[in-house]
């Protein structure tokens, strides 16, 4: 049996909007989820149900309100819900990868370096990191002439593929994918599907949000359904 890589227990998240008179919006409640190595779980549920909120909470981008987010980091289960910032950064560095819907980088850095930054951050040489980054960008059909340009000038689909390259280059044992194929054409969707399946074969545990039924069927081992909460107005 493959081992549990990520486990949430009784995870809850709400937002308190102080600028709107302190109104509290509960989004997640009692989320219990087990993710094993080599497994891909796709979150399902209607729009606005909190799929992205769950993803961001799992990444530590949103602060879990209660419950636990245990992740296997360096062989031990670390609770991201209570971990200090430096531990969360270390987990993101080595264990937990995230492909968001939007690329957010320093404005003038060339695409190849945006991607190569992950391996250089782990001590790879600049040349080696650029070589791996170039291969990955080419596989995602980013033409070589764009590699030296900052992605800010790219189309939405190109930016998304740079983002995917940046997410996949780290070979993190746990990967969070938020609409990885949303703005891609059929050809690039196929590339991403095969990259995801290769990662799974290597033992990567994946949680994804994916509205495209075709992609979902191709990558999901199981679905995890989120249901709307009552507004506690």
């Amino acid at each position: 049996m493959s081992q549990v890589m990520l486990r949430t227990t009784a995870l809850a998240k709400s937002f308190t909007l102080h600028l709107q008179g302190g109104v509290r919006i509960p989004v997640l409640s009692a989320i219990g989820l087990d993710l094993h190595s080599g497994e891909c779980i796709v979150l399902s549920g209607p729009s606005g149900v909190g799929k992205s909120t769950l993803m961001r909470s799992l990444y530590g981008n949103y602060r879990a309100e209660s419950g636990h987010i245990l992740i296997r980091h360096r062989g031990e289960m670390v609770d991201l819900a209570t971990a200090d910032p430096r531990t969360i950064l270390a987990v993101r560095h080595e264990t937990l990868g995230y492909v968001s819907q939007f690329l957010r980088v320093v404005p003038r850095v060339p695409a190849v370096d945006v991607v190569a930054e992950v391996p250089t951050g782990r001590g790879a040489s600049q040349d080696e990191a650029r070589r791996i980054a170039t291969d990955l960008l080419l596989r995602l059909n980013i033409p070589r002439r764009l590699h030296g340009l900052p992605p800010a000038t790219f189309s939405g689909g190109e930016q998304q593929r740079v983002n995917l390259a940046r997410g996949f280059i780290g070979n993190h044992p746990v990967l969070l994918l938020d609409e990885p194929t949303a703005s891609l054409d059929a050809e690039n969707r196929a590339v991403v599907i095969s990259m995801i399946n290769e990662a799974k074969a290597r033992g990567t545990a994946i949680i994804a949000i994916c509205h495209d039924a075709e992609v979902r069927d191709a990558i999901a081992d199981r679905l995890f359904a989120l249901t709307p909460l009552q507004d506690a107005a």
Binding site: F15, T16, L17, H18, L19, R56, G60, N61, Y62, R63, P85, I88, L89
Partner: peptide, 21 residues
């Protein structure tokens, strides 16, 4: 105080929410 992206994307304190918004 906290992780930069957490504080900016999920601000808890009214003043931080005002600053971010």
């Amino acid at each position: 105080t906290g992780l930069t992206d957490q504080v900016l994307d999920d601000p808890q304190h009214p003043y931080t929410q005002l600053l971010v918004s």
